[in-house]
């Protein structure tokens, strides 16, 4: 079942001088099983949008349909707990949510809250830790003494241990070094391959280009564009229109076209592009 937003608005601090409309009449559908990127400038409503998915925020008006639940204004949805289990939300800088004495306990915290027995919770925690690339030597260490990248992985394992069917990520690689970010993205890609619906808020166009299938562009609290990646990155015109720096490969294709080379719209990797160039260079010779 797809995730649907129907005429969803969200207003912060309504009735005070600080009133702020973050979402306005949003209609949206997110395909089940897809890897969807949510992009847009700071303040465009991306984070507000995704926090509706596990009912952390309730709409001020309108309805969100997630799995078989309806999230509407005013009342917390039924089966809230199981919704939060099914829709795992990883916040920006999630390392700030760590608090337990040991890594294992911290990762098992989520499953325990959702009713797993201690043995079950530990088993789920261990599985999640392995997925994020942390071996058993980490289990008994304090999460607070780990490095930044390791903390991030523990925090993400804490969500994965809940076995969510939908994984929502708010700038999951912010502040990581390129190598760490790449590992993280590969983890999400593999979860997606296993069938998890992944929704990722990001500013990183290289990641969107490389890993995502669909893209939603938010602007002033509304989805401005929703399309598949191929259409979005056909050329750099859409990016330029949105004032986004296109991925390097797209910029390269643009630069080549300018010099009179023909490059296929479908080329999405360096190797194919190199082959295309080589073919043309050789035909000139």
């Amino acid at each position: 079942m797809p995730i649907r937003f129907e005429k969803v608005s969200h207003v912060y601090s309504d009735g005070t001088p600080f009133r702020y409309v973050a979402l306005e009449d949003v209609d949206l559908e997110i395909r089940e099983g897809a890897f969807t990127a949510v992009i847009g400038q700071t303040g465009s409503g991306k984070s507000t949008l995704v926090q509706h998915l596990n009912a952390l925020l309730l709409p001020s008006s309108g309805t969100v349909y997630v799995m078989d639940r309806q999230i509407i204004a005013g009342t917390e949805p039924k089966k809230l707990k199981s919704l939060r289990k099914d829709v795992g939300l990883v916040f920006q800088f999630p390392e700030y949510q760590l608090f337990e004495e040991t890594v294992l306990k911290d990762v098992a915290f989520g499953p325990k809250n959702f009713g797993a027995s201690p043995e079950e919770a530990n088993k789920l925690a261990r599985e999640a830790l392995r997925k994020t690339g942390l071996d058993e030597t980490f289990e008994e260490r304090s999460p607070l003494e780990l490095s930044g990248g390791q903390k991030r992985r523990v925090a993400i394992a804490g969500i994965l241990a809940m076995k969510p069917k939908v994984l929502v990520l708010d700038e999951p690689t912010a502040g990581l070094d390129p190598a760490g970010a790449k590992k993280m993205m590969e983890l999400f890609a593999s979860l997606h391959k296993e069938g998890t619906t992944v929704i990722m808020v990001t500013h990183d166009m290289e990641q969107v280009f490389r890993y995502c299938e669909e893209v939603i562009v938010m602007e002033n609290g509304k989805p401005k564009i929703q399309t598949d990646i191929k259409t979005f990155f056909r050329d750099s015109s859409l990016c330029r229109e949105l004032n986004i720096l296109p991925p390097a490969l797209i910029r390269m294709k643009d630069a080549l076209r300018e010099k009179g080379y023909t490059v296929s719209d479908d080329t999405v990797d360096i190797k194919t592009l190199a082959k295309e160039i080589a073919r043309q260079v050789k035909s000139h010779g």
Binding site: R84, G88, F91, P94, F109, I159, M162
Partner: peptide, 16 residues
Amino acid sequence: DETGRIMKAQESRGVD
């Protein structure tokens, strides 16, 4: 702000 953020993060992990 930070308190709000942490609260939401923990609620996402099933804290009631």
